[in-house]
């Protein structure tokens, strides 16, 4: 089986390449990435699987590069579409920049797949819980998406572009929470990672609003494991929620306090109402879930000094 991962050199991509490169049924992992974040860590450091893995191939190209994208799809059985412009919670980026990649980049992939109907048999499309915007209660897979941010809108439009391919291939539409946890390609703009770094450096963490606003979170390893199961055909296609738990900023702080008892918090704009989004975890992806503090302690061991 040949798997192509757009955005495969990114945070989640790196862990996914690691997971797939270890699967015996995978003959080749094609990492399709424009390296726009200037993160080259996928290629650095110890091999991702046993020995030097010749089954990993990197294509440095943009998802909007129609010609290269089509060429890269040659002989590919499974596509995992991670390439996206992201924002951190509460941050609104340039709307067009989000649209360009998340909506039109996905569209470009959808045209290429539509033209080779029958060759790619499985598509895993990474969307976001941000498509729900704000939730009254818990957003379930039946909840109608009502995105509240430019990012959420662009991700929903991307979903619509691939949903129309559902009769051509097995479609996994994955609404993913905010990713955290150690990876050599990790992002420190992801909120839990950023807080842990601040705590480790002895800095104060900054809490905006009341700190009670909630978001859905998933550990990068569990996200990679779930997507790899989809890629390998261990799950039935459909729409998925990919998250471990919903956490408030204060709960994250409390977990950090267990590791860094001297951690101080600064509250900014406490009166500002903050949106909450609580998303129902997906029972098909359920598994053992260690306490957050335990995971953060494991993460902490990756810092080379205290």
């Amino acid at each position: 089986m040949r798997v192509l991962i757009t955005g495969g050199a990114g945070y989640l991509g790196t862990e996914l390449v690691r997971a797939l490169a270890r699967a015996p049924e995978v003959d080749e992992v094609v990492v399709y990435d424009n390296l726009s974040r200037r993160n080259y860590n996928l290629m650095l450091g110890p091999p991702l699987s046993e020995g030097r893995d010749t089954r990993i191939r990197l294509v440095v190209a943009d998802v909007l590069d129609t010609r290269r994208l089509r060429a890269a799809l040659d002989g590919v059985d499974v596509v995992i579409h991670l390439a996206a412009r992201v924002t951190t919670p509460f941050a609104e980026g340039d709307f067009h920049a989000l649209e360009q990649v998340n909506h039109w980049g996905t569209a470009e992939l959808s045209y290429a797949l539509e033209e080779r109907r029958g060759s790619v048999r499985r598509l895993i499309h990474l969307s976001s819980t941000a498509v729900y915007g704000q939730s009254e209660g818990e957003a379930t897979l039946d909840t109608a998406p009502t995105p509240a941010t430019a990012y959420g809108i662009s991700k929903l439009r991307g979903e619509r572009m691939v949903e129309r391919l559902g009769s051509d291939l097995d479609l996994f539409l994955v609404r993913c929470g905010n990713i955290y946890g150690y990876s050599r390609s990790l992002r420190f703009d992801a909120v839990i990672n950023r807080f842990l770094l601040d705590a480790h450096l002895g800095r104060r963490i900054t809490v905006e609003g009341s700190g009670e606003q909630r978001r859905a979170f998933v550990h990068v390893d569990r996200a990679a494991a779930a997507i790899s199961r989809m890629a390998l055909g261990e799950l039935e296609p459909g729409r998925f929620h990919l998250l471990d738990r919903n956490l408030s900023v204060l709960e994250i702080r409390d977990a950090l306090l267990q590791l860094y008892p001297d951690l101080e918090s600064l509250y900014i704009a406490q009166d500002l109402p903050r949106r909450s989004l609580i998303v129902a975890p997906d029972p098909r992806l359920a598994g053992p879930l260690p306490p957050l503090a335990e995971e953060l302690a494991a993460f902490r061991t990756h810092f080379s000094f205290d």
Binding site: D62, L64, D65, T66, R67, R68, H96, A97, Q100, W104, E108, Y111, E115
Partner: peptide, 22 residues
């Protein structure tokens, strides 16, 4: 049949990197 532009989407951006319809 679909008629597609011979110009790759990545080459359809203006000097500031925005798609041309903007």
């Amino acid at each position: 049949r679909d008629a597609r532009s011979p110009v790759s989407r990545a080459q359809q951006r203006d000097a500031s990197g925005r798609l041309l319809f903007t």
